[in-house]
Design a protein around this nucleic acid. Structure first.
Length: 517
RNA sequence: GGCGCUAUCGUCUAGGGGUUAGGACGGAAGAUUCUCAAUCUUCAAACACGGGUUCGAUUCCCGUUAGCGCUACCA
């Protein structure tokens, strides 16, 4: 045995995220990226992004863009970037090496006809007997004659021959060579398969740790075989438990809808740091009951030992179900005021929502305000940064998603309040007459008071006392008149931001509504 | 079918030969309060099943069951 071509580097780890650009970036991929990234950053290693685009049929530029877009939003960077399609020569070289060593053979069976032959007597297909044992001379002859062939790995299947590796998460893994099929290295068009390309690149890029989804655990035996056949020491492996839907199946866009796409979370108003936090808690634990963590805290706490072995459910509501319930939703003025109707946030995992709310509250008012500005302006409202800065503290404890600001603070942005039921103006244990009385008095009082918290508080409470109503009965009609709904931020702060003119105008409108009702 | 991986509250998880099996989300109740939210307190909620090993298994071993993955000239 000669020395491996890639002697173990005693330096820093090199990890990679290697998506195949055949769809949008979904949450499972994002988590794989994050775990790799955390490992790299934690150990001062190198993060590599490699597009595994050997499947020309299914690759799309849109997918590549989706991946970049998603990663950009997450704010996670990488240090090196490669595309497998640029490295075909390297892949074929490795195939040639393996072939020269006699550890691969040409399979002249026409493509796509394998199925019938595969379902043979044993019901199991491991290799094509005629091809595996073809003499070198005949093989060369047929190849020289221009016959096309796929190159297959000659899996050692002597009795008792085992393939083994140690997985950082799943422990010692052993499988009999006899149970591994002769997988393809090169397709009949000469293109490398995933297994070959992946291993060739991992070896060439000197990847030290392969951290990827558990769906590759069984493939790893093949990879170990490839590495060894080509003379390389296999890297360390760490397989991640899969993310599954509430129904237990693997996440898929077709089955589960947009909740599996990273951009859905971005567009709904998740903070990237909260989303990352959420994903990390799926299949990994810091083991100290800590849940709310910043990016840096995650980096500091991360280790492969904390990774679980069982699949984790992303507890979202099935989109089919969600959309059915959401269907009857008409153009109701403010969703927040209609608790009976489901909001889009109901589709997300409650824990993700909670974490997002926590991260939102952890932001400075300035920071949150800026992020909210983007959303609010994007929705077509015009607000000044100065006003947004005053609104932010009033809603920051009332929103779970950035987009919630649109419904939680709509009355600050709207010139004219959207329609509301005049009945809402009627206070608890009161009637329309009381509402009217309260609003008329409020109009007088507010016309002559400074719009600052304390004066507002004092004058309105005094007015309530004069009228012989409870403070709550005084505030509620005003709140509804001014916000268009019962549930809203604290009244005095709200009035302060709204200003005297708007407040008075809305109260007048409310009085008119009441009078005509 | 074959091979493999996995199994603690509804969900994410901690734990581990002897524990009141811990935390979080979500749920329920209460406190607070100008509504809502936030906050605080309390409550309900789990070791898949069957065999071993052992003085003692939720924990270790075997099996069953279930779920998932791989079984492509996809990745």
């Amino acid at each position: 045995m000669s020395e491996p071509l890639n002697p173990p580097s005693h330096g820093k780890p090199r990890v990679r995220f290697a998506p195949s650009p055949t769809g949008f970036l979904h949450v499972g991929s994002a988590r794989t990226f994050i775990f790799n990234w955390l490992y790299a950053r934690r150990n001062h290693g190198t993060m590599i992004l490699r597009l595994d685009d050997t499947d020309v049929e299914r690759n799309t530029d849109a997918s590549v863009n989706s991946i970049f877009e998603g990663l950009k939003w997450l704010g996670l960077s990488w240090d090196e970037e490669y595309r497998q399609s640029d490295r075909g020569t390297l892949h074929r070289q490795m195939a040639e090496t393996i072939f020269q060593k006699g550890m691969a053979y040409r399979d002249f069976t026409p493509a796509h006809t394998g199925d019938s032959e595969r379902s043979g007597a044993q019901g199991t297909w491991l290799f094509n007997p005629g091809m595996r044992e073809l003499s070198q001379a005949e093989s060369d002859l047929r190849a020289a004659a221009g016959e096309t062939f796929a190159l297959r790995f000659r899996v050692p299947r002597d009795a008792g021959r085992m393939v083994r590796f140690t997985d950082a998460v799943y422990g010692e893994q052993v499988k009999a060579g006899a149970d591994i099929e002769d997988f393809a290295l090169l397709r009949s068009d000469g293109m490398p398969t995933y297994h070959l390309a992946s291993c060739a690149d991992d070896a060439d890029l000197r990847i030290s740790h392969i951290i990827r989804g558990q769906d590759h655990l069984s493939n790893t035996y093949k990879h170990v075989l490839i590495f060894e056949a080509a003379g390389f020491a296999p890297p360390q492996f760490a397989h991640l438990p899969l993310l599954v839907a509430p129904d237990g199946t693997k996440l898929s866009k077709r089955r589960h809808g947009p909740v599996v796409s990273v951009t859905t979370y971005r567009d709904a108003g998740f903070l990237p740091e909260a989303f990352i936090n959420f994903l990390c808690l799926l299949g990994w634990s810091p083991k100290n009951d800590r849940e709310l963590m910043s990016r840096q805290e995650l980096v500091d706490a991360f280790s492969l030992e904390g990774i679980n072995r069982s699949n984790a459910v992303v507890n979202f509501k099935e989109s089919a179900e969600a959309s059915t319930v959401a269907a009857p939703k008409s153009d109701v003025p403010s969703a927040a005021g209609n608790p009976g109707l489901p909001s889009p946030e109901e589709m997300f995992d409650p824990k993700a929502l909670w974490l997002n709310a926590e991260h939102i509250r952890g932001l400075s008012v300035e920071d949150l305000s800026q992020r909210l500005m983007t959303i609010v302006q994007g929705a077509g409202f015009s607000v000044t940064a100065e006003k947004m800065l005053r609104i932010t503290p009033l809603i920051r404890e009332r929103i779970k998603l950035l987009r919630d600001a649109l419904t939680a603070a709509d009355f600050f942005f709207l010139k004219e309040l959207s329609l509301y039921d005049p009945g809402e103006l009627v206070p608890q244990k009161g009637d329309a007459a009381m509402a009217l009385k309260v609003l008329q008095r409020a109009k007088e009082v507010l016309a002559n008071v400074e719009f600052k918290h304390d004066p507002l508080d004092q004058s309105l409470r005094a007015a309530a006392q004069e009228l012989g109503v409870k403070a709550g009965q005084m505030f509620q009609p005003i709140r509804v008149a001014v916000c268009g709904r019962k549930n809203a931020p604290p009244l005095f702060e709200t009035l302060e931001v709204l200003g005297k003119e708007t407040t008075l105008h809305r109260i007048e409108e409310a009085i008119a509504k009441l009078a005509s009702a």
